Amino acid sequence: MSGTESTDGGAEPGSSLAGAALVVAVTVIAVWLGLLIWLAFDTDASEVTWSRLLVVLGSVEAVAFAAVGALFGTTVQKQRVADLQARAEAAETRAEANQTAVINGEKLAAAVKATRTPGTDGGAERLSVDPRLGGDPVLELANRLFPD
């Protein structure tokens, strides 16, 4: 999946939910708010009517809170996905740079091995005049880091 594809059913980048889910969420929230407003202004209803309306309000309220949770939850999740995609792209960039460094290091080791073979000078100047070191230290390092 590329970084430009959407995981929310093809919604626009700025929206949280797509299509029917968004319509249902907004409708449920609007119905809940409508019931609240109606109950606030219908204060002269009987006790039985109030009890029944509160039961209806409670069930609509549960669905409305789920809809609000879906709206806010998808927004938060979308931000997390965007952050993780950015981290993944940065990791891929670092991995590519590390792969290039590995290839360059192997090329350098091969060049050192080719120009500094034991027993010949190869036109290379020794890095140390200490006879206790034995062979060429650069060649020894290349052989240790990149064994054949």
Rank of each mutant, 00 (worst) to 15 (best):
K113C: 00
V68Q: 04
F41Y: 13
A70D: 03
L57Y: 15
L39R: 13
V56C: 12
L39M: 03
K78H: 06
F65R: 10
V76K: 10
R132E: 03
G119I: 04
D83T: 11
T43H: 08
R132P: 00
L57N: 08
K78W: 00
T27N: 11
A109H: 03
A111S: 08
A91K: 15
T115M: 13
T49D: 07
E96C: 03
W32V: 02
E96P: 00
V68E: 01
G105V: 00
A90Q: 09
F72Q: 08
E92V: 12
A124G: 06
E47A: 13
L53S: 15
E106N: 09
N98Y: 15
E96F: 00
D121A: 04
E125M: 11
G69C: 01
A86P: 06
S128T: 05
G19V: 03
Q85T: 09
T120S: 10
A111F: 07
L35G: 14
V129F: 08
A97P: 02
L22F: 14
V55G: 08
V63E: 02
T74P: 02
W32Q: 05
A64S: 15
A110I: 02
K107N: 14
Q85H: 13
A20E: 04
R116E: 00
V60C: 02
G19Q: 01
R126Q: 03
V81L: 01
V48S: 08
R87K: 10
L57C: 07
P118V: 10
G69V: 00
N98T: 11
E89S: 13
L57H: 15
A45G: 10
A124F: 09
A66E: 01
E125I: 15
R87Y: 02
E96R: 08
V23C: 10
L54V: 07
R52M: 12
A101F: 00
T120A: 06
L53C: 02
V48G: 06
I103H: 14
R80M: 06
L127K: 10
